[in-house]
């Protein structure tokens, strides 16, 4: 079947099978910035934004994204133009192996879009589904607080 998904602001017409999982389709189509291994929605590494809301792409049928907008971490910012969250993750030592980071930053982006002034508890709650085995989370929480501050002071979101 053919679906139309807007990926990182570009409309993509994709030929898929009805049972295809969004994560697998995204990676097959070259959006390998979306990571993920569990395929059970437990680890959060595959998080993308669907019309601005975080979803586990490993649990979602690609067909269900038809007509919707998907944003990956590369749509949030790339190496030439990193987003404040990406900068803050780098500056705060919030990245070790990096495998969970695209999902974590994506969840954080959804949070800041909703709530530009989150508390630590808000961050812990919003990103609770994003497992990280390396960092112990604290520096990631500090990074999100810093990025939120940066975005508020910069006057943009």
């Amino acid at each position: 079947m053919r679906v139309s998904i807007t990926i990182n602001a570009v409309q993509c017409l994709l030929e898929i099978e009805p049972g295809d999982i969004l994560l697998d389709v995204l990676r097959r189509e070259g959006y390998v910035e979306v990571k993920g291994d569990c395929h059970t929605g437990d680890c959060g590494a595959c998080t993308v934004l669907l019309d601005g809301k975080p979803v586990a792409s490993c649990l979602m049928l690609a067909a269900k994204a038809d007509g919707h907008a998907v944003t990956t971490v590369r749509g949030i910012g790339d190496q030439r133009h990193p987003h404040a969250l990406q900068k803050a993750f780098v500056h705060n030592g919030a990245i070790q192996c990096g495998y969970c980071i695209p999902g974590a930053i994506t969840s954080a982006k959804a949070l800041l879009d909703e709530n530009p002034e989150p508390t630590r508890e808000d961050i812990r709650l919003a990103m609770d589904g994003n497992y990280c085995r390396c960092t112990g989370y604290e520096q990631q929480i500090e990074a999100v607080l810093e990025a939120a501050r940066e975005l508020r002071e910069g006057g943009f979101r």
């Binding site: 971490v73 590369r74 190496q79 990193p82 990406q86 780098v90």
Partner: peptide, 9 residues
């Protein structure tokens, strides 16, 4: 850092 933060392959 930036490669990992932006999901580089």
């Amino acid at each position: 850092g930036y490669a990992l933060a932006t999901g580089a392959p």
